[in-house]
Amino acid sequence: SPLTFTKNQSYQTSEILTPENKVISHNNFYEFGTRKTDPQDNAQGFKVNPWQLKIEGEVEKPLTLDYEDLYKLIALEERTYRLRCVEAWSMVIPWVGFSLAELIKKANPTSKAKYVAFETLYDPEQMPGQRNRYVGGGVSYPYVEGLTLPEAMNELSFLAVGLYGKTLPPQNGAPIRLVVPWKYGFKSIKSIVKIRLVEKMPPTSWNILAPHEYGFYANVNPQVDHPRWSQASERRIGAGGLFSAKRIPTQMYNGYGDQVASLYKGLDLRKNF
């Protein structure tokens, strides 16, 4: 359904948007199956209302957001971000949502909080991939992700509740998902039920599954290849047909270096991939 929001002029782009029908029919959401078409095929009955999102852990004011709160606790804005998948394809998507930092500030983190851990809903009855190893691609569920606290508090980190002006379709992570545009897509965890502030670096799903292929940071970096393919360029999924796609050079931090490069000063990005 349509959302009420303002356009944030600081986060617009002259790039061509990926059409909505492609954004909602080409998804990695292994809870609903490993093929790109599975989430759209299998998620349509997914129930997002009622929903509870908890913010807890090292905070002075733990919060619980109900479904309605997701849309009204913080005023919604639209931001257009590039999304770079670790599989070397990319999209440009207009998200609707709010800044992650604003939400975290409301919970008042303690001085012990150093990392932010995220968790997807665990509901094998609704998510066939969580019931069956064959469907879920061998990931151990619930899906978990994490950021350092400075990353989470960065102006770019965004919680999306919609895209193209409407509430998120289930295959894109309804009702609420993370969007961290300078990192590979798998960091942008979907259908979140828990945000936990913690002292130590939390485990993350793809890192558990294949630690030599997927690191904790997963910053977009054209200089560090995935073991099985190059990350130097990407296939931009645009408006046209099959042969109209373009291969474009991948930018460091997916082009968001001005906002985030300072977070990684002194960090060896080859080791901390």
């Binding site: 909602i24 029919s25 080409h26 093929r35 790109k36 999924i237 796609a245």
Partner: peptide, 14 residues
Amino acid sequence: NVFSGGAGGDPVQY
């Protein structure tokens, strides 16, 4: 499948 959209919005990997 590709032309009916049954292979998804970006059927390259498919």
